[in-house]
Structure formats: structure tokens, C-alpha cells
């Protein structure tokens, strides 16, 4: 049985009377990349900041390797690599000094690992942090999170600011980490990333985790997307009881009917074009967000 490495139990966070996250329960398995998606304000950052104890939980607990992850759990924190969505570091330091400073908190950090990452992301070591571009700052944040060989990586919008070449290198780095059984909590709003790299995905909406499934499970839902163009489009809309917007005698709708039934019901009408396809991750995301 695969070990559950991070467990979040009934996490609730209110900012005064405003809800941040409610009753969020989630378990991450060892070695998986868990995608955490939701639009801005859904509660992604609140969840991450609660895990990292930057903010106080209203209620609930977070366990890492079966031990409660509290503010002062230093031994647990040593095994976590964290990349915040906005990387803010000590601007007076050079990249090299920042890396050395970071390494000083992790006795087992190897120079080779650090050098490998710096070379991989082509980061100028002698530049001062205040002179780094947004992209280079992000790269430095990634290196800091990955250099300590953490067992758990918490990454908040990691590719934001990276160019496509660096993004590709980053995905390869993720694969290498996964091969080492590192567990990765990957928060993003870029759905294509989730499909590309994640094993499972959690969808958060209005502070509540509404779905946790594997990518395959999500895609294999009995949900089809149909695009029809027809001069009888109004009748077709009535046939399928659609409220969708009709544009240029074309309508796109989702249905749980199978392909045969759809075709049979459409055969009564004159059809110019018809496209029946499985939902993309975007389609599923919007399906849950309706």
C-alpha cells in the first residue's frame, strides 16, 4: 500500500467572517504529483499558507509523515521544499550568497546538487538578487526549493515567469524528483500543466475541495461535448433542452448521453457540421465551475 505522506484533516480558515477554506481534507501519496487547481481566490494560497503555518488555521490539522506539522516542527520543515507564488528574497545578497545562506540551514545539502541546478537553469551566480529579472528570481526560488533533496515539495505557481525552454527543463526536473519518490503538491491555474505532469488533481472552488481524481478518471467521465451547426438549430436546442448561447447557427453543449443516442436524435434534423469529442481538462474544469 502506498504511504500517505501529507494529510490535511478538516482544514478551515476564516479571515474574520470571510471564508478562506472550509473542511478541506486531503491526503497526498508518497511519490505522486498532486495538482491543485482553482481560479484566483478559490483558496489555493490559503491552503498552502496554512500547511506552511504562515497563517493560523481556524481549525483542522496537517500531518507530514504522520507527525503534526506545527510552526516549530523543525525536523519536518527540514524535509519540505517550498516555492511561494511570489519569490521574495534578501535583495542585498548575491545569488551565490543566497544559495550558501539557504544551504546553511540544511546540513545535508550537497554542493554538486546546487551546482547542477544552477547550471540547469543557467542562473548568474554573481548577480545581486535586487538585479535579477522576474524569471531569474523564479528560477532561484525553484533552485532553493529543490536543492535540499526534500521529501515533500510544495510549489505554488512554479512556472509563472519561466520561458518555454526553462519550463521544459522544470518539467524534466519534476519527473526526476518523482522517480526519486518525492511527493509534490503542485498548485496552479494552468490546466495544460496538470494534464502533462500530475497523477491526481484536486479542484478547489469557493474554499471547498469539490473533486479529487486521477487525470484519467476525470477524463473518462461519461461526459461528451457536442458542437452542432444546423439551419434547424433552434429545434435542436429544444430537443436537448439547451439554454446555451447559439452563434451562427452553431451550438456547443455537454451531455451524458452516449454517441449513438446523440446521433439518433440529431438525425431528424438537417446537419451541416457535427463534432462529438471527449472533454479536455479545461472543459471539465469549467464543468465543475458552473
Amino acid at each position: 500500500m502506498v504511504k500517505e505522506i501529507l494529510k490535511i484533516k478538516k482544514l478551515t480558515k476564516y479571515y474574520g467572517k470571510t471564508l478562506g477554506v472550509k473542511d478541506l481534507t486531503l491526503a497526498l501519496k508518497e511519490g505522486e504529483i498532486f495538482g491543485f487547481i482553482g481560479p484566483n481566490g478559490a483558496g489555493k494560497s490559503t491552503t498552502i499558507r496554512s500547511i506552511m503555518n504562515l497563517i493560523n488555521k481556524t481549525s483542522g490539522q496537517v500531518f507530514f509523515q504522520d507527525e503534526e506539522l506545527t510552526k516549530d516542527a523543525i525536523n519536518l520543515k527540514r524535509q519540505i521544499g517550498y516555492l511561494p507564488s511570489e519569490v521574495n528574497l534578501y535583495e542585498d545578497l548575491t545569488v551565490k550568497k543566497m544559495l550558501d545562506y539557504h544551504a546553511s540551514f540544511y546540513p545535508n545539502t550537497s554542493q554538486e546538487r546546487c551546482k547542477y541546478l544552477v547550471d540547469l537553469f543557467q542562473l548568474p551566480e554573481n548577480k545581486k538578487i535586487e538585479d535579477l529579472s522576474f524569471g531569474n528570481l523564479k528560477k532561484l526560488g525553484i533552485i532553493l526549493a529543490f536543492m535540499t533533496e526534500a521529501k515533500l515539495l510544495i510549489l505554488d505557481e512554479p512556472t509563472n515567469g519561466l520561458d518555454p525552454i526553462m519550463q521544459q527543463r522544470f518539467y524534466e526536473l519534476l519527473k526526476a524528483e518523482k522517480a526519486k519518490k518525492t511527493t509534490i503538491f503542485y498548485s496552479t491555474h494552468i490546466l495544460s500543466e496538470i494534464a502533462k505532469i500530475c497523477d491526481r488533481v484536486g479542484i478547489i472552488k469557493d474554499g471547498q475541495l469539490i473533486k479529487v481524481e486521477t487525470i484519467e478518471e476525470l477524463k473518462s467521465k461519461n461526459l461528451l461535448f457536442v458542437t452542432v451547426s444546423s439551419p434547424d438549430i433552434e429545434k435542436i436546442a429544444n430537443e436537448f433542452q439547451l439554454t446555451n448561447q447559439i452563434e451562427n447557427q452553431t451550438v456547443r453543449f455537454q451531455t451524458k448521453l452516449d454517441s449513438n443516442t446523440i446521433i439518433k436524435r440529431l438525425s431528424k434534423y438537417q446537419i451541416d457540421k457535427i463534432l462529438i469529442n471527449e472533454p479536455t481538462l479545461e472543459d471539465l474544469f469549467f464543468h465543475y465551475y458552473k
Partner: peptide, 16 residues
């Protein structure tokens, strides 16, 4: 103020 607290808090050091 410099927003470096998120980095500092992520390090293996206690608040104390």
C-alpha cells in the same frame, strides 16, 4: 515589510 517572511518561515527554524 520586505515580504521575505514567507522565505524565512519556510526554513527549518522555529519562530522562537
Amino acid at each position: 515589510n520586505d515580504q521575505t517572511i514567507e522565505y524565512l518561515n519556510g526554513l527549518p527554524v522555529s519562530r522562537t
